[in-house]
Design a protein around this nucleic acid. Sequence first.
DNA 1: TCAAAAGTGTTCGAATTACACCCATGG
DNA 2: CCATGGGTGTAATTCGAACACTTTTGA
Lengths: 232, 232
Amino acid sequence: MTGYTEKNRMLIAVDCIIFGFDGETVKILLIKRDIEPEKDKWSLMGGFVQAGESIDEAAQNILTSLTGLNGVYLEQLRVFGNPDRDPVERTVSVAYFALIDINKYKKQLNHRFHAEWFPIKEKPPLIFDHEEMVETAKTYVRYKAAHHPLLFELLPKKFTIPQVQSLYEGIFNIQLDNRNFIRKLTAANLLIKLDEKDKLNSKKGAFYFKLDKKRYKTNFPNLLSFIPKGSK
Amino acid sequence: MTGYTEKNRMLIAVDCIIFGFDGETVKILLIKRDIEPEKDKWSLMGGFVQAGESIDEAAQNILTSLTGLNGVYLEQLRVFGNPDRDPVERTVSVAYFALIDINKYKKQLNHRFHAEWFPIKEKPPLIFDHEEMVETAKTYVRYKAAHHPLLFELLPKKFTIPQVQSLYEGIFNIQLDNRNFIRKLTAANLLIKLDEKDKLNSKKGAFYFKLDKKRYKTNFPNLLSFIPKGSK
DNA sequence: TCAAAAGTGTTCGAATTACACCCATGG
DNA sequence: CCATGGGTGTAATTCGAACACTTTTGA
């Protein structure tokens, strides 16, 4: 342990991996970078941590400035700090991921950043080590979602069970038995059935549900398993 | 997203929460701080990230300088970056946790740091936000160990099943049924039985086992559950 | 010989899976 | 009137918790 003198001060950045779901596809929000280096290339939304600001605050501010959204699910992923990750100057970046309902977001987009949603599977190459960040985030979200009802953060206020199922199938890249999925999900006791039906995807129509927020909050740290054991 | 000019450069530190197990108790390694502020108070082992060094390397170097150990389990926990967490100057700290077998460590201790092992339940107050770091690490290790065979990192090369059990009981603060535990553990197929017995704790003696490293590595990311559901 | 820890076997109920089948309805 | 997705019912199986019982051996 050495003293404070003659230490190396560095830039601290925050980069946000913003995931969204539109009812069909899992997407990621990218911006077209407006500064050198790598101007006009696609990048995660990010920024530098300011003097009086905690890192969490910085992440929240960056997210809000782009999406206009507050109260969105935002979690620290991890730090990326290779000495040469930013060619201009040593910059340590703290990656955060956000989960948002795309529809909620659409209207409030700040166009200054030239942001665009890309289906996860068709995203363009990214600058610096942002590819690695996205991969890490995808892996982590999968991991966490296998135990926590995390993915509800991606859904709109009211949603149908088949929608939830296709979200899980998209995230985990698997096929699920809809009959067992329905039962597992309703058994979890997290949903409240509404009277309305969504008739877009079937003639019979699927009932809308909303989250039971109380139970959701209380049960959040508990384990849930929507993924059958046999499916790697 | 703003440019690189006029940015706030900050100190980046690494702090290590070092957990160890001596066969009976889970312990944490602390050092007596030798610089101001808070000189002579207990603290996590830490240091600043140097210019050419990645954060992971910095953490590894710090760990090695204290314990003399390499190849120890070391994982990034998360960043602590409140503006006032270090009273001297804004410092962002990346917390890492390490899991080590205490016996392995004993001989190589670097005495320069006045380090000492404390049973987790009897640790002294710590400086800055180190308490919060330790709490976060404890919670996270519990969480991860509930699904991964993480705790084997704390055990010596050869160990008995009752030892593993008391480790789990210590970490999770629960009592486990030894008969079910034995079966679960052997069913996981991670252990190789040795001929030797440990006779210290019983007259009958308990067989030593060693890890099946191949299976351990391959199965590491898979889920395992040693903790019964009923025990919060 | 007996106390105490290590380890095996057995039972029972809950949870998981696979899958047959019914429901509602727009074209 | 039938194809299509939504949803219920049910049998077969696995899994986990509880617990009776055997084994070993030093004191």
